[in-house]
Design a protein around this nucleic acid. Structure first.
Ligand SMILES: [Mn+2]
Ligand SMILES: [Mn+2]
Ligand SMILES: [Zn+2]
Ligand SMILES: [Zn+2]
Lengths: 132, 132
DNA sequence: ATCGCAGTTTATAATGATTCTAAAAAAGTG
DNA sequence: CACTTTTTTAGAATCATTATAAACTGCGAT
């Protein structure tokens, strides 16, 4: 399995459930955005067996902590995750409630002039809300 | 009362509760960020009488709809609101879980090059996460 | 291979922010 | 005041997420 190493190197045991979730999340051409519920549906369909919801949450949080996923800050009732962990930005289509990637090259360089004492910048994220 | 007109002009009846919440939210030098629970505490202390939690929610949402407040997209269990409704950006101090304003002038001009067919840009918000 | 243990999964319960409900109170109108 | 509409309210409901604790599994040591 191609994800066994990845998991072992992260100190995560390559369990059947984690490997299945890896397939769904990472074995694709394109990266994508998802909620936990969307992921659960995808697993059920693509791997056609169910993984406990608690395990899906646990795994997503474990992967996030290891840097394989990131959370997108959106005002939505459900948390959105992204399999694209490179620095990039987002459109948020308010009507469709869908995220669309915005490459760094689609946004001019962002220069934060203000400094906060004793703190360093961890990330800079732009959210562009879209309406009709 | 200085907020009676403001409410009437928005089609909101100037009730005792709304006026009290106006005092807490808008009768200050500086704008600020808050969660519903922080606002409830502030009301209890500053106006020393309690307003039903449902009313605080109702009022905050009514004010948001009228454009007197805005919601800040953050990954937090509680929703954050802002009494500063001008276009501006935010630092988010991950350890303190506090928002700090970033003026437009503290961030270079942002130019979104990508266009989405049939959609227009409603807002552009930058979130800068801070760590130690 | 077997043992033993820490790590993981799971069903289910608990939590907690937010929303809903429907009855009582207050505001606006004349 | 009498009447209508809006608002407030306490409490219940909702629902995404997290906690629990028992069963299971991966894996290194014997
Ligand atoms: Mn989370
Ligand atoms: Mn809300
Ligand atoms: Zn993305
Ligand atoms: Zn602000």
């Amino acid at each position: 399995m191609k994800y066994v190493e990845k998991l072992r190197n992260s100190g995560l045991r390559p369990t059947k459930q984690r490997l299945q979730i890896c397939e769904v999340l990472f074995n694709t051409e394109k990266t994508f955005h998802f909620t936990i519920n969307e992921l659960e549906q995808k697993i059920k369909k693509q791997a056609n067996n169910k993984i406990s919801l608690a395990t899906v949450y646990n795994t997503v949080h474990a992967f996030e902590k290891k840097g394989y996923l990131k959370q997108i800050p959106i005002n939505s009732s459900e948390t959105y995750f992204d399999t694209n962990v490179t620095d990039h930005h987002h459109f948020y289509d308010l009507k469709e409630e869908k995220l669309i990637d915005l490459d760094n090259s689609d946004v001019g360089p962002i220069n934060i002039l203000k400094k906060i004492n004793g703190k360093k910048i961890k990330s800079v994220e732009v959210l562009v809300k879209l309406e009709d």
